[in-house]
Design a protein around this nucleic acid. Structure first.
Ligand SMILES: NC(=O)c1ccc[n+]([C@@H]2O[C@H](COP(=O)([O-])OP(=O)(O)OC[C@H]3O[C@@H](n4cnc5c(N)ncnc54)[C@H](O)[C@@H]3O)[C@@H](O)[C@H]2O)c1
Ligand SMILES: NC(=O)c1ccc[n+]([C@@H]2O[C@H](COP(=O)([O-])OP(=O)(O)OC[C@H]3O[C@@H](n4cnc5c(N)ncnc54)[C@H](O)[C@@H]3O)[C@@H](O)[C@H]2O)c1
Lengths: 216, 216
DNA sequence: AGTAATTTGATAAAATTTTATCTATAAAAA
DNA sequence: TTTTTATAGATAAAATTTTATCAAATTACT
């Protein structure tokens, strides 16, 4: 059996990793050295065994009766996610959502560094939003080829999404974090990750209605 | 076998329903009457069979060679999600993110109506953000008991999250849409849905690194 | 009318994800 | 020191989710 036999695409586990990271950093900040799976499980409202399965991704060994070394875990998760060194990104569409993402300090803790933003609105171009310069989106191609950024955060209106995407792809962007409601068409070698606010609301709605006492 | 044997908690399917709804409404707006699973599949970048499985939740019968009646599907999905009549909600924390959610017209298409917002900042209290009045959060309990709202959208700083949650729960809120990074503690009969921006970024990061040609 | 093509829906299989069980290990307690 | 206890890690089982297969239904075509 190869060293790399561990499945890397446990999507639900990957989605939970940032939440572990957040907790672990908090603990680390408090001076804690070790943490146990039951502790993390209680915080995350999941089962301890699932925590242990998730943490297998980080390839860190815990010690019985003690738990995991927090520093090692943090390092292991960061390495797994590729968040060791910062990921440079562009943000396109400095509207309500875009500006709020630019102002979200927490994202920086997750490996992401937004180095430039773009907008078509001349009133926004030239400004600096939360320390990030806003350029005219006509300059996207030029700056992308100059700065070698591989991730773009898409916050334009849905109607503009595909068109902007085409420019991004043509300029060599390899990953698009898509906050619009468009289902973007991209070549095979480009990854898109769509954030759909409504899907969370759907889950909440369904759970709420199922939670109500039946009215027979 | 009972009529209600259909599983209601197919979480991944539920999460996809809003995306179907969006597409279906778009088609309906263009005057289309019917839609097939292969068409929806192509748009959503999933398999047609999965579309059919998902749409089973709506309990609408399609007709072979024709597809599904779009109007029926829309109605079926809305009914399943409880989005037929609007869900009234409060939003707490009118900061960058909160304001951007208040300004997001699309959420209204998803059954959610934010009837009031709350903040501690006296400079925000009294204002109207995108048509929604902002009250002092000291008045949360009072207004909750008056307006009988069962959903709250939580956009306060993480450090305030649990404390605000306790007030919400004490005032009878049954569902909390949590945008903070806190893992909220709530009684059993209260549903929380946590939106974690970073988990999407984690998936994107992992897929990106796995997509790179191996450098051996 | 008859045939071919497309799509739904039922059933089954495969894959993935979560949970359970048990053993080994390290620390704490007796 | 010995016993007890808590926890990791291995293995297996269960549950969930996705994918495959195929028959039935409906439309379009010849
Ligand atoms: N506001 C939210 O809470 C929220 C939540 C989830 C998703 N979204 C989605 O995010 C997107 C943006 O939403 P918003 O509320 O920020 O809208 P917005 O109108 O406030 O912002 C859109 C921005 O994009 C800019 N823009 C338009 N065309 C552009 C182009 N071709 N290139 C570069 N910039 C361009 C506009 O000038 C504007 O600044 C929408 O697709 C929306 O559906 C918004
Ligand atoms: N900005 C983003 O893109 C983003 C994305 C995801 C999650 N979040 C999370 O959303 C939350 C808010 O983020 P933000 O960027 O809008 O921060 P922000 O500081 O801009 O807004 C916070 C708002 O909450 C108000 N507030 C503070 N204490 C309160 C209380 N007890 N009751 C009512 N209101 C109170 C503040 O006055 C402020 O208006 C944070 O937890 C953040 O981590 C933000």
């Amino acid at each position: 059996m190869s060293q790399c036999a561990l499945k890397i695409d446990k999507l639900p586990s990957v989605r939970r990793l940032p939440a572990y990271l957040h907790l672990l950093r908090e603990l680390s900040g408090k001076g804690e050295q070790f943490v146990s799976s039951p502790y993390l499980a209680e915080k995350m409202h999941i089962e301890a065994i699932l925590v242990r399965k998730d943490l297998e991704l980080a390839r860190i060994n815990g010690t019985p009766r003690v738990g995991y070394c927090i520093a090692d875990l943090i390092k292991g998760i960061e390495d797994f996610l590729g968040w060791g060194e910062t990921l440079d990104a562009f943000l396109v569409g400095v509207g309500q959502l875009g500006a709020s993402i630019l102002g979200n300090r927490e994202l920086m803790n997750f490996g992401l560094k937004i180095v430039a933003a773009f907008d078509v609105n001349p009133r926004k171009v030239g400004a600096t939003v939360h320390g990030v310069p806003v350029f005219d989106s006509a300059r996207l191609e030029e700056l992308l080829s100059r700065l070698q950024v591989s991730i773009a955060i898409l916050c334009v209106p849905a109607a503009e999404a595909q068109q902007v995407t085409d420019v991004l792809v043509a300029s060599g962007v390899k990953g698009i974090w898509n906050f619009t409601s468009e289902n973007l068409a991209v070549p095979e070698d480009v990854i898109t990750q769509k954030e759909d606010l409504a899907s969370g609301l759907a889950v909440l709605s369904v759970k709420l209605t199922r939670n109500k006492p039946p009215t027979h």
